[in-house]
């Protein structure tokens, strides 16, 4: 069953400029984690913004969790969530207060209990009542991830979830994501520049270049198809146009 069906997704910012995203098609099944890969400017963030409804596509059909995003995006958004290290939580209020705000926005029942659960799962206890602006990078990432999971999303969109984290914290975050997907059967679409992360988490990868989907498949499949040793070398082949 499809969590996210995308047909002909495209975005042009101006008629005289190349399309930022051009004719993207994919069908993300429920319970799967897929990667969205591409160099800077390949269209990953633009794609995620369109999937979240915050950016209007030039042409599209996006069905998220059975809802047409052009007509009924708020019904889908209630069951989705999003995390990016580039969009902060309000810095002057505490992590607990931030979680309350988003709990109300997403209509989370028994909110205080949900915050306690997340505090335990994400190990927020030591800084739950500290202002979000006073947290370290790793703590901020955990807080943002807790916000992203506050409503038990069926579809999670993550933009570089482990950017700027040390290897230990990044590994911890990946483990939590794997646990969440396994426990809730959620679909995850992950944009990342970290190929080891993508190989570990993603069952399927969409390779973007200049806004177009140039290849896709399971990481091992792509590695074999390009005759390379790992996904990073495949990425470089595609980004540099040196694929055989």
């Amino acid at each position: 069953m499809s969590a996210l069906l995308v047909e002909g997704l495209g975005k042009s910012y101006a008629p005289d400029r190349p399309a930022a995203v051009d004719g993207l098609d994919f069908d993300l099944p429920r319970g799967a984690t897929w990667g969205l890969l591409g160099g800077n400017g390949a269209g990953k963030t633009t794609t995620i913004a369109m999937l979240l409804g915050i950016l209007m596509p030039t042409r599209e059909r996006i069905i998220a969790l059975g809802h047409d995003m052009a007509r009924d995006r708020f019904a889908a958004l209630a069951r989705m969530n999003f995390s990016s290290p580039y969009i902060a939580l309000p810095a002057r209020i505490s992590v607990r207060e931030n979680l309350r705000v988003y709990g109300h926005l997403y209509g989370v029942p028994r909110l205080e209990k949900r915050i306690s659960e997340l505090s335990e799962q994400m190990q927020l206890g030591e800084f739950l009542d500290r202002p979000a602006g006073e947290l370290s990078a790793g703590q901020k990432t955990r807080a943002v991830l807790a916000k992203a999971l506050i409503n038990h999303p069926d579809l999670l969109l993550l933009d570089e979830p482990t950017a700027s984290l040390d290897p230990d914290t990044a590994d911890w975050v990946r483990t939590r994501l794997e646990e969440y997907r396994a426990a809730h059967g959620a679909a995850i679409l992950l944009a990342s520049h970290n190929m080891a992360e993508v190989e570990r988490l993603c069952g399927h990868v969409l390779m973007l270049k200049q806004g177009r989907l140039v290849d896709q498949g399971a990481p091992a499949e792509l590695v074999a198809r390009y005759g390379r040793g790992d996904l990073e070398q495949v990425f470089l082949d595609i980004a540099r146009g040196t694929a055989a």
Partner: peptide
């Protein structure tokens, strides 16, 4: 606080 993005991808 660069929070508008989070608000506008919520059901608000």
């Amino acid at each position: 606080s660069r929070n508008l993005g989070h608000l506008l991808v919520s059901p608000l």
